[in-house]
């Protein structure tokens, strides 16, 4: 097992803040595993425990079959960690940062150049620029290069795409897939629910508890309600009318549609249209849909 987490709990402030409550899951070798949840769910706390920077109150965790407490030195040498907050030396240049991290891990930029080439070529034109002067996207690429410089077996990426625009996010995930193909196990956290679909397996986390662990497909199949996407001319009114509909289980805006679920499995689109037409709605479009991770997250919340 690449990562094994058993009943990990962690609190802060003398127990006042329960950051993690009895967390357990495993990550297989070579897996791209996503820890999906909003800010404050406990993602960073878990990453810090797994990278040996923080000790849990109770429970056990191992990385590459080594205990995170007893074998912390071994783990620190073998894993790559990209923290959520940019943590490189702002007043060293791109090249100096890379050489610094390479030296720390007893290697050189040349030795593992293959692994970081794809990413590094994009920042190479700025290699004499100080890290603090890079744009957000470039900082992220430099941080990933530094986390990879010693060819880690397991890579921990804590919210690498937070605050990143959709285009750069897409490119970043393409990069992760290529790293995975090189045999690296990746644990990545994100608050963006749409990124769940790009992982082999995911764990949904909220308020320090794991809501569910499985493949994104399997989690979607477990959704217990009939789900429809509905659109009409007056979206705000549509939302209120559906909230007042007796057959409604939940209704949430989803971009240009609202997602509507019902406990009544026999409920048809036609029946819903009839109701909405009686409320004066025009140009109603309705279609049965499969839930996405956000639907499921809200259902489990």
């Amino acid at each position: 097992m690449s990562i094994k987490i058993e009943n990990i709990s962690k609190s802060y402030n003398k127990g006042k803040v329960q950051a993690l409550q009895n967390i357990s899951f495993e990550v297989q070798p070579g897996e791209l595993f996503g820890l999906i949840g909003p800010d404050g769910a406990g993602k960073t706390t878990l990453f810090r425990i797994l990278t040996t920077l923080l000790i849990a109150d109770s429970g056990k965790a191992s990385v590459m079959n080594k205990d995170v407490v007893a074998d912390y030195k071994y783990i620190r040498n073998q894993v790559g960690y990209m923290p959520g907050k940019f943590s490189l030396y702002q007043d060293l240049t791109v090249e100096e940062n890379l050489n610094f991290f390479a030296t720390i891990f007893g290697t050189t930029l040349e030795e593992n150049y293959d692994l970081i080439k794809d990413i590094y070529v994009q920042i190479e034109p700025f290699k004499t620029r100080r890290a603090g002067k890079l744009s957000g996207g470039m900082k992220q690429k430099l941080a990933l290069s530094c986390a990879l410089i010693h060819k880690p077996e397991v890579l921990f990426l804590d919210e690498p795409t937070t605050g990143v625009d959709p285009v750069s996010r897409k490119e970043f995930w393409e990069m992760l897939k290529r790293l995975q193909q090189k045999g690296i196990t990746i644990l990545v956290s994100t608050p963006y629910m749409d990124e769940a679909a790009l992982c082999d397996r995911i764990a949904l986390i909220k308020d320090g508890k794991i809501l569910k662990t499985n493949t994104p497909e399997q989690i979607a199949q477990d959704f217990p309600h009939a789900l429809f996407a509905i659109r009409a001319d007056q979206m705000y009114q549509l939302l209120s009318d559906l909230k007042a509909y007796p057959k409604t289980y939940s209704v949430y805006p989803f971009g240009e549609y609202v997602h509507f679920s019902s406990d009544d499995a026999t409920l048809t689109g036609i029946e819903i249209i009839k109701y909405l037409t009686s409320k004066g709605h025009q140009n109603v479009v309705i279609q049965p849909i499969k839930p996405d991770i956000e639907d499921i997250f809200m259902e489990l919340s």
């Binding site: 909003p38 800010d39 608050p191 949430y252 956000e294 809200m298 919340s301």
Partner: peptide
């Protein structure tokens, strides 16, 4: 709404 959970975001 960066990083905010889906329900609160809505």
């Amino acid at each position: 709404t960066g990083g905010v959970d889906p329900i609160t975001r809505r």
